[in-house]
Design a protein around this nucleic acid. Structure first.
Lengths: 332, 332
DNA sequence: CACAGAAATGCACACGTTAACAATGCTATT
DNA sequence: AATAGCATTGTTAACGTGTGCATTTCTGTG
């Protein structure tokens, strides 16, 4: 049906081996015949059968980019930046397969034959079993966004805790003492890191936090809205609120303006992530930039290098987060 | 290295043919042996080699989800909803490959052997050559989001023009007569459809638009901000602005508030798409909902059915868009 | 008991590619 | 002129799976 190297061989009057070598730029082949064969292949519109090549070379040319979940807790911007980062790096000869880990009923199809390498954008420990599975099968593996302890992997992680620390400290420096937090999705590592940074900063400055200032959320817009609504009904309202991501911050601001109050006049709000839209909120959101695209790019590069050289450092690399000061925090 | 059907055959004392049949639930095999073989396969932790299977069956188990571009003009929410929609439909036994068409240097790797089917999320005619290429190669093909004329394909498209028409008419009904438009990215089909709907509505109501009320944008936040800034400096400011997507609307609102003005008191703003964040903007954005996730799901379902049955309707199917009234438009 | 027919299994090849090894022809050196 | 050695090409097998056809085994019928 479609053109194979044997068809080319027949037409060129050589063996199919010679064709294979010619097309793969083997130095064994006479430059003249090589050119001739390439010309014929081109004119016949030949495209190699990757299944056959995969079978003999034991390479699939597939890379996996796996998210803990695609349903709740994964924001659109996060997905977007990750895919962009990885796709920018991989060459024309790799396929990028995108999937939520929780969409797999069984990991059966995930193995060395099917994936030359895997990037896990990990958000919670719920994907631990997947990571261990992949590590077990000896699939080249990079884990992004969450530190993994149990298994030795290449591991790139944004320094969330330090970011939250610096942000909270900034709030303190602006004169705030009553600072609440709207937390991320339960069980997500980032939730914990950001809370830890927040607490550390307050403790360092000798500020204690009433229990009511810890409000739970799950990283989506609605939860930010609901959480802020709760805070606003408190008898002792906080003067500033640290939202554990920008989506929730947007929801929180909404809750404030709905009540006829304003940010930052009546209450200050800060976020985390520095999403695309954050600079364009009204007021522009003070937040912490998390370099997801860079992280993804670095992850992909490292993975490719490992696939080629089988060599790498299996250690945790921290990526710097950056305080972005805009207009949603008032100086008291 | 890894387990093959021949290893299982040896252990079970049968031929590898029998193993192959047993694992594929062939009716030719004695139910008892079938169970026995399956048990052995399970205990050996056998996973089939998909390259080998692909080679002989001429199926890759890959589906492609291709965007015109992943760089500019594709918003995060759009990507997110599309991926979610498709991933919800495809079963465990398909891989979803995500990529921007403009990332391909050559379409060499795109062929029937490599893709059982392709979904093109098409935004502009710049991907026309890709669509024709895929159609030429007889790869099962669904095109979403943009009507394709030159080639016969399965084609699902949101009814942008009608949505823009209804939105604009709503603005008129609210008493607006001076209505500007911030347009989408040049060359995108959706840009044209939305502009057409806008013009049609105004013409129908006998309202003429000064040239200065057409401002160009490119679907991203910055361009919305810049465009609105221009409009605000006009001597005859419009009372309402139709932004061709929600991202630009957010940027536009920002430009308004920066000048100490307010939406919708001083100027009304409407968007298009109904992004996740639109309900949470301040004020909540009046917009048109575009059912991208449903569209993607329908596209994926149709594609899978076609792959199985080789049968389908190759015609354009319009998906209804829906006016979503919130708080960003004032009644004059 | 013979035999037809069905049920179950095996043999051998195919899919398209790469690669180890063999074979050929040519050049240069003695 | 013989031979070593290099450049170039061909032969053959292998990767792991599925399938047409042949073969064996079983079952029931006359």
């Amino acid at each position: 049906m479609s053109v194979t190297i044997k068809d080319i061989a027949k037409l060129a009057g050589v063996s199919h081996t010679t064709v294979s070598r010619a097309l793969n730029d083997s130095p064994l082949i006479n430059p003249e015949t090589k050119e001739r064969i390439k010309a014929i292949a081109g004119s016949m519109n030949y495209t190699p059968n990757y299944s056959a090549r995969s079978l003999v070379l034991d390479r699939s040319y597939n890379l996996g980019l796996f998210f803990t979940t695609l349903h709740t807790g994964t924001s659109a911007g996060f997905l977007y930046e990750a895919i962009k980062g990885v796709n920018d790096v991989i060459k024309d000869d790799y396929n990028l397969i995108v999937r939520g880990i929780d969409d797999y009923k069984s990991f059966h199809k995930v193995n060395r034959k099917n994936f030359d390498g895997i990037i896990v954008m990990s958000q919670s420990e719920s994907d631990q079993s997947f990571i261990e599975y992949a590590s077990d099968k000896e699939i080249p593996l990079v884990v992004l966004n969450r530190p993994v302890e149990s298994v030795q992997v290449m591991n790139f992680v944004p320094d969330d805790q330090s970011g939250a620390y610096r942000l909270t400290e900034y709030l303190v420096q602006q004169g705030h003492r009553d600072i609440a937090i709207i937390e991320g999705k339960q069980g997500f590592k980032s939730t914990q890191a950001r809370r830890d940074g927040y607490r550390e900063a307050l403790r360092k400055h000798g500020i204690s936090v009433p229990e009511a200032y810890y409000v739970s959320g799950n990283y989506d817009l609605e939860s930010g809205h609901a959480a802020m609504s709760k805070l606003l009904e408190l008898p002792d309202r906080p003067t500033a609120v640290f939202c554990c991501n920008d989506d929730m911050a947007l929801g929180a601001v909404k809750a404030v303006t709905e009540r006829g109050l304003s940010v930052p006049e009546d209450i200050s709000v800060a976020g985390f992530d520095d999403h695309l839209f954050s600079a364009f909120m009204s007021p522009a959101l003070t937040t912490v930039r998390r370099p997801i695209e860079e992280l993804s790019r670095a992850g992909a590069e490292t993975l490719l290098k490992f696939i080629e050289t089988k060599h790498s450092e299996k250690s945790v690399v921290l990526f710097h987060t950056e305080l972005v000061i805009r207009d949603s925090v008032k100086s008291l």
